[in-house]
């Protein structure tokens, strides 16, 4: 009874935040609502026992995506103004959104109430997977192939982001030049928080092998730390042509792919023999975390800036 009350309250607030984020003309307000929305959705994930997802949503959904959108808003300025809305187009969007939403609602309530999915299969093979956290087992072992491709999706997005640099900007540092008052609040933030953030990030990566956490969540936290120091004007990002940077970017997916290909000598792909599964997965997770964190930082910063005039 109380539990349902809690769940329903969360959902009502979620829907209100989403509604406020998609309506109205004020983009800043919409982004603020989106960030609160990300926070609430983390709470929702905890209620359905998905701590790993809650971590990812807290770090990425409420965190980095919000920062990315806020940064874009700050740079767009007045360019982000809306033309007048034609009534007809709004109506079409309303009908389409409501129609698809209703169809999905119909499908959800028509699902069998007892579907346990693959929980039993995953738990049965958990020991053979080498790690204790079922979600990590799926991500890095059972469906490691998806994760390998996903780490490359991140890289492709980064190359795409870089590729829209201006012609003269190639070889420069990514993003805009951030500055802050020496000794001011912003700079103190940038000096104080990274220490804590590094510990939390490393802890979450490490915890991922046995409990909730993992490369993506931890990598995001580490990325957040780096972004913070850059926003505070304490350090500047390396040039996009820096050699170590590029090798560090491809190292994670590269090691993962290399280990996967090793299996071909035994006639398989992406196998972790049980004896070495734990160290192999932890090793992959560590290099992957480094590459992911770096990629995320650069994704948020944006393309190389214009060359100084």
């Amino acid at each position: 009874m109380i539990a349902s009350g809690f769940d329903i309250t969360v959902c009502v607030l979620l829907c209100l935040c989403a509604l406020a984020a998609v309506t109205g003309r004020d983009t800043f307000r919409a982004i603020v609502f989106f960030i609160v929305y990300g926070l609430l959705i983390s709470v929702a994930w905890l209620r359905i026992d998905a701590i790993d997802v809650a971590l990812a949503e807290a770090a990425i959904g409420a965190g980095l995506t919000g920062v990315l959108l806020l940064g874009a808003f700050g740079q767009m300025g007045s360019a982000d103004t809306m033309a007048r809305e034609p009534r007809g187009a709004v109506l079409i969007a309303l009908v389409a959104g409501a129609g698809i939403g209703a169809a999905v609602l119909f499908a959800v309530q028509g699902l069998p109430p007892e579907g346990a999915g693959l929980t039993a299969e995953v738990l049965a093979q958990l020991e053979a997977s080498g790690v204790g956290n079922p979600v990590t087992a799926v991500l890095l072992n059972f469906r490691g192939y998806d994760t390998l491709l996903e780490s490359i999706v991140l890289l492709v997005a980064l190359i795409g982001v870089w590729s829209v640099a201006s012609e003269t900007g190639w070889g420069e540092r990514p993003g805009i030049v951030h500055h802050a008052r020496a000794g001011g609040t912003l700079q103190s933030f940038g000096r104080f928080l990274p220490a804590i953030g590094l510990v939390i990030g490393a802890y979450i990566v490490w915890a991922g092998s046995s409990g909730p956490g993992g490369a993506f969540q931890g990598g995001t936290v580490l990325a957040a730390v780096a972004i913070l120091t850059i926003l505070a004007g304490l350090v500047d990002a390396p040039r996009v042509t820096t050699r170590w940077l590029r090798w560090a970017l491809v190292m994670g997916p590269g090691v993962f792919l290399g280990v996967a290909l090793l299996g071909l000598f035994g006639g398989a792909f992406l196998v972790f023999p049980q004896a070495v599964a734990y160290p192999a997965i932890v090793a992959i997770e560590i290099v992957l975390t480094a590459s992911i964190a770096l990629t995320l930082v650069l994704l948020v910063l944006g393309p190389p800036r214009e060359a100084p005039q």
Binding site: A58, A59, G63, F189, L193, I196
Partner: peptide, 16 residues
């Protein structure tokens, strides 16, 4: 994580 990222969001707010 929420606490740490909230700090980042605060900085991003200021920047925006």
């Amino acid at each position: 994580v929420l606490a740490l990222l909230a700090a980042l969001a605060a900085v991003a707010f200021v920047k925006a």
